[in-house]
Every structure is written in C-alpha cells, then in structure tokens.
C-alpha cells in the first residue's frame, strides 16, 4: 500500500502545483499544456489512491479521503514535486527531472505481474507521461540552447533542484520490498537509465549536469519541506471546511 501511495502522491502533489499555473502561464498555449498535464496526473492519482485506499488494513478509504484528509506527515511524495513553481523555467526543470523518472518507473509497473491493477493504471499512465517527458525535454532544449539569458536561468533552475533528485533513487525498505515483490523497479538500475536520459537532453540543450552534492530526502517517510504544508492548506481547505460537500 505504501508503494501505491508514493505513486499516487507524486502525481497528486505535482498536479496541484501545475494547476497553480492555470491562467498564469507565459502563453495561452502553454497554459493549456501545463493544465492538461495536471489533469493527466490527477487521473493517475485517482486510480493509484483508490487502489491504495482499498487495501488499507484498518479501514478502506476513498481516493478523496486520502487526498484531502491526510496531514502533510502522511503524504509520501518526493520533495522534488512539492517545490513551489518559481518561474516558468523552474517549473519546467522540476517537470523534466520528474518526468524522466516517472516514465521509467511507470514502464516497469506496467510490465510487472505482481499487481495487475497497478499494471493497468501504469499502462495508461505511460502514454501520458511519454508526452509529458517530450514536452518538458523540448522546453529544456529550447531554453538551454536559446538566448544567453534563458540558458543561464534554466541552468540555475536545474542546479537549484538537483539536491532533490537523490531522493528518487534512495531505496528504503518499501522500495526494496517492492522491488523484490516485483511491483517497483530496482532503483539502482533505474538511476543508470535516468542518468542516460537526462544527460542526452542536457547535452543537446548545451547545459551542464550539476555535481551530485548533498541530497535532501524525507518525503517518502512524510518529512516534508514547508512548501507542502502551505500547498496542502490551500488544496484541502474546502473539503475540510465543508465535509462531504459536493457539486
């Protein structure tokens, strides 16, 4: 169940962040692109969290209950996806680093046979994430290989977010158990593939891959940055103020 929560929470938190761009993106076309991606991610969230909630040993929960009635300490998403949007380049850099990881992970989950429900969700998600990764990669190349200003700004975005990339591959007991069961990918092998994918795009974008410095972790065990707390306050205010409200 923890493994499914991680998959669902990554998608949910990133979707909420992308939704913040609605009406604010630099161009109308990009506004729609970012919110389309957010909607794809919300669809994935609903599926993963419904499945996770149905497996709760104490009491089955709905996807809405999991999304809106958990505290930040109960969220299992990566620190990377909860970071605030910053400028458009920051958002694209966050998206790019995550998309490449999410795609490799979803490809694995789609092919495993340990949990066929999760495989079905991931099979649909793979198609969506493939487009997300293409979208963010093209922007990285456009900005990196663009003007000197866009180059230096996107380089700084990547440098700033790099400290959150280690967490994607820092395997804990949930990852190891999930990987032995077959549901989750082996993160060491995934890292090698991710490195290749990232390097390929950075090279074309004429950007420099940052050194692996000190990495921030904690999201997987519920220890988040305060970015998540403020984000959840906004996301959850309605269902918490008016329990059971519908429209």
């Amino acid at each position: 169940m923890d493994a499914l929560l991680r998959l669902g929470d990554d998608a949910l938190v990133l979707a909420q962040r992308l939704g913040e761009w609605c009406g604010h993106a630099p161009a109308l076309e990009e506004d729609i692109a970012l919110t389309n991606i957010a909607l794809d991610l919300i669809g994935q969230t609903q599926s993963y969290l419904s499945l996770a909630g149905s497996l709760d040993p104490d009491a089955p929960k709905t996807d809405d209950e999991l999304a809106f009635l958990r505290s930040d300490r109960e969220f299992k998403n990566l620190l990377l996806v909860e970071q605030s949007n910053g400028h458009f380049g920051d958002t694209i850099a966050r998206q790019f680093l995550f998309d490449k990881y999410a795609l490799l992970r979803a490809e694995h989950v789609a092919q495993q046979t340990f949990d066929m429900d999760a495989a079905a969700i991931a099979a649909k998600a793979v198609k969506e994430i493939r487009y997300h990764a293409d979208h963010s990669s093209k922007w990285i190349i456009r900005l990196g290989d663009g003007t000197s200003e866009s180059h230096s700004r996107i380089q700084k975005s990547i440098n700033d977010l790099w400290k959150f990339t280690g967490e994607m591959f820092a395997a804990d007991e949930v990852d190891i158990a999930g990987s032995i069961a077959g549901l989750l990918p082996d993160l060491t092998a995934l890292k090698t593939q991710w490195d290749e994918e990232i390097d390929k795009v950075l090279l074309e974008a004429t950007l420099v891959r940052p050194e692996d410095g000190e990495m921030k972790t904690g999201g997987r065990t519920g220890v988040h940055t305060e970015e998540l707390v403020t984000m959840l306050a906004e996301m959850q205010v309605l269902p918490r103020t008016h329990p059971g409200a519908s429209w």
């Binding site: 487009y131 093209k138 456009r142």
Partner: peptide
C-alpha cells in the same frame, strides 16, 4: 502561436 513547427504541433495537440 508557436516558435517553430514542432512546437506548433505540440501546442495544437494541447
């Protein structure tokens, strides 16, 4: 609006 054909197709899709 798009900067090039590739981006125009991506935007058109969205």
């Amino acid at each position: 609006h798009a900067s090039d054909a590739e981006m125009a197709i991506g935007n058109a899709r969205d």
